[in-house]
Structure formats: C-alpha cells, structure tokens
Lab assay of single mutants.
Amino acid sequence: MRVFPVYAPKLIVKHARIFLTGVIWVKDLGRLEFEKGRFLLPRKSLPKVKQAILELNELIEAQN
C-alpha cells in the first residue's frame, strides 16, 4: 500500500497504471482500491471521495 500525503491526481494515476491492482491511501480521502488500472467506487463513500475517483478514472481514460 502506497501512502500519498496530498491529493496529486497525476501521480496517483501513474501509480495505478504501473501496478494495475492494489490499494493506496490518500490523506483526506482515505483508502482507494484499483483493479486493472481503474479505481473502484466503494458502495458507500463521501461525495468528495466519489468525485476524486471519477476524476482519476477520467484521467486514466484520457491517457489511453
């Protein structure tokens, strides 16, 4: 598990694309899981977490 002390979308996306499957922890967002290079949306999450995951997945799609 990698810990990101700040929310840096480009760096987080780079990590997810390299490792494809895993878990990261982002300060103020908490634990985020990714599989096959995409972030998974938890069943229950705060609106800011949901927005961050959608933003990260959009960045991943834009890079493909």
Rank of each mutant, 00 (worst) to 15 (best):
K48T: 07
T21H: 12
R17N: 08
E35S: 11
I24C: 06
A16F: 03
V13I: 09
L11D: 11
A8Y: 08
S45N: 12
D28I: 05
L56I: 04
P5E: 15
G37P: 00
T21S: 14
I12D: 01
V13W: 03
V49P: 03
I18A: 09
L40C: 07
P5W: 15
K50H: 08
T21N: 13
K10P: 11
L54V: 08
F4C: 04
L59M: 13
E58H: 11
V3Q: 10
L11G: 06
Q51Y: 10
R31F: 08
K48P: 06
R2K: 15
T21E: 10
F39V: 02
G30V: 01
L40Q: 07
L46Q: 11
V6W: 14
E33H: 14
L46M: 11
P5V: 13
R43Q: 07
P9S: 03
K44D: 07
V13Q: 04
L41M: 11
R43K: 10
E61R: 09
I24S: 01
A62H: 12
K36H: 14
R2E: 15
V26W: 03
E33I: 14
E33Y: 15
E33G: 10
I12Q: 01
P9N: 02
L54G: 08
W25A: 04
R43A: 06
F34H: 03
I24K: 02
W25H: 05
F34D: 00
F19H: 08
F34V: 04
Q63H: 10
A16P: 01
L20R: 10
T21M: 10
K14C: 12
I53P: 00
V49K: 12
K50D: 07
S45V: 13
E35H: 13
K44V: 06
P42C: 09
D28W: 14
G30Q: 02
G37E: 05
D28Y: 15
L54E: 06
F19P: 00
V49S: 04
L29D: 01
T21Y: 07
Y7H: 02
T21F: 10
Q63F: 10
F4D: 01
N57Q: 03
L54C: 07
I12L: 05
I60E: 03
Q51N: 12
W25P: 00
Q51I: 09
D28H: 15
K36Q: 13
R31S: 04
W25E: 14
K27F: 13
D28K: 15
P9V: 04
R2W: 15
I60G: 04
F39A: 01
E61T: 09
P47W: 10
F39H: 05
Q63D: 14
G30K: 01
M1W: 00
E58Y: 11
M1Y: 01
W25G: 03
R31I: 08
K14G: 10
R43E: 06
L29Y: 06
L46V: 12
R17F: 09
L20C: 10
R2M: 15
G30D: 02
R43H: 06
I18K: 14
N57K: 01
K10D: 10
A52S: 06
K10V: 12
L46T: 12
R2A: 13
E55P: 00
L32K: 00
Q63C: 10
K10R: 09
L46N: 11
F4P: 01
N57I: 02
Q51H: 12
L32S: 01
R38C: 07
S45L: 10
A52Y: 04
P47S: 12
T21I: 08
M1K: 14
I12T: 01
L32F: 14
A52Q: 04
L20P: 04
A16G: 02
A16L: 06
I18N: 10
G37W: 02
V6K: 07
R38G: 04
E35Y: 13
K50L: 07
E61Y: 10
K27G: 14
A8C: 14
L20W: 08
F19G: 04
A8T: 13
Y7R: 01
L59W: 07
R17H: 07
P9I: 04
L29F: 08
E35K: 14
G37F: 04
A62G: 09
R2G: 07
P42Q: 07
L46E: 07
L11N: 05
L59I: 09
V3P: 05
W25Y: 14
R17V: 09
R31L: 06
F39R: 01
P47T: 12
L11I: 08
T21R: 13
A62C: 11
R43G: 06
L32A: 01
K48H: 08
K48Y: 07
V3F: 15
D28C: 14
I53T: 05
I12S: 02
R43P: 06
L29S: 00
L29G: 00
L32V: 06
L54N: 07
L29W: 05
K14D: 13
M1A: 15
I53K: 00
P42Y: 09
L32R: 00
K48D: 06
G37L: 06
P47V: 13
R2Y: 15
P5S: 10
N64A: 11
L32P: 01
L40V: 11
I24G: 00
E58A: 11
M1N: 15
W25L: 10
V13L: 05
L56R: 01
L59K: 05
A52P: 01
N57D: 02
L40Y: 06
L56W: 01
F4R: 00
I12R: 01
R43S: 06
R38P: 01
P47H: 12
I12G: 00
L20F: 07
P42R: 13
L41T: 09
I18M: 10
I24L: 07
I24Y: 02
V26E: 00
